[in-house]
């Protein structure tokens, strides 16, 4: 554990709280992508299967349980009490609904889940169920934010807490990269190309967002994407 990873984890933890605080406070999930949240739920469920058979630390265990339960709560809220405020039209991916006129997650399944799973079958740290699901979760996490970013792209502007949520998740990823660099130079056998490549891809996806978020904060102006 180093300060970079700890700060990253704390920002990740705060991101859930920000999103939940916002949804409860405004009694609305407008501007939040249900697809991204479901993808994150799949990510955590697949990756933290090891809760049942391996123990790293109390810290890891508590965080894993928190990540799963917080995301499950957010998804549950979006499907139940805040359902009426869900902006489904802006949470559509290209290709959604084109499959025999139904199956809304078609785009997510075809463009995100299936490719990640196929990649996990090819590049993993061991050809066994747990390792494949673990690699799948790493790849899926890298792109899980895409529906949320697409949604922002469509609406052009975001509500302050939703932007703060995206900022926290992006910053957490950025800190993880610094954590890997630190670990690489301080630990003897630390070598995780699979995680590094996915993590860098994941962080790059936030670059555009960070740029416009920073502009808005600097100028004290409203966040607005071009186009």
């Amino acid at each position: 554990m180093n300060i970079f990873r700890l700060s990253g984890d704390m920002l990740h933890l705060i991101s859930f709280l920000v999103l939940m605080y916002r949804m409860r406070g405004q009694r609305s999930c407008r501007g939040v992508s249900l697809k991204s949240q479901i993808l994150f739920l799949i990510v955590f469920c697949c990756r933290y299967l090891d809760l049942f058979f391996s123990f790293v630390s109390l810290y890891n265990t508590m965080m894993k349980i928190f990540f799963i339960s917080a995301t499950a709560t957010i998804v549950y809220w979006m499907l139940t009490k805040y359902r009426s405020s869900y902006d489904m039209d802006n949470d559509k991916l290209h290709g959604d609904g084109s499959f025999m006129g139904h199956l809304p997650p078609h785009g997510v399944l075809g463009y995100i889940i299936v490719p990640c799973f196929l990649l996990a079958l090819i590049w993993n740290e061991g050809f066994e169920a747990f390792e494949i699901l673990w690699a799948f979760s790493i790849y899926l996490e890298a792109v899980a934010i895409l529906p949320q970013l697409f949604m922002l792209q469509k609406t052009k502007e975001g509500e302050a807490f939703t932007l703060l949520y995206i900022f926290c998740v992006g910053a957490y990823r950025g800190l993880y990269i610094i954590n890997w660099i630190y670990r690489y130079f301080t630990e003897k056998h630390y070598w995780q190309p699979l995680v590094w490549v996915s993590g860098v891809v994941q962080t790059l996806l936030y670059a555009d967002f960070f740029y416009y978020y920073w502009i808005a904060l600097r100028d004290g102006a409203k966040f607005q994407l071009p186009g």
Binding site: D9, N60, E125
Partner: peptide, 10 residues
């Protein structure tokens, strides 16, 4: 490499 070493991050 043991599972513990490889999967020790969140």
């Amino acid at each position: 490499k043991s599972l513990l070493e490889s999967h020790d991050e969140l």
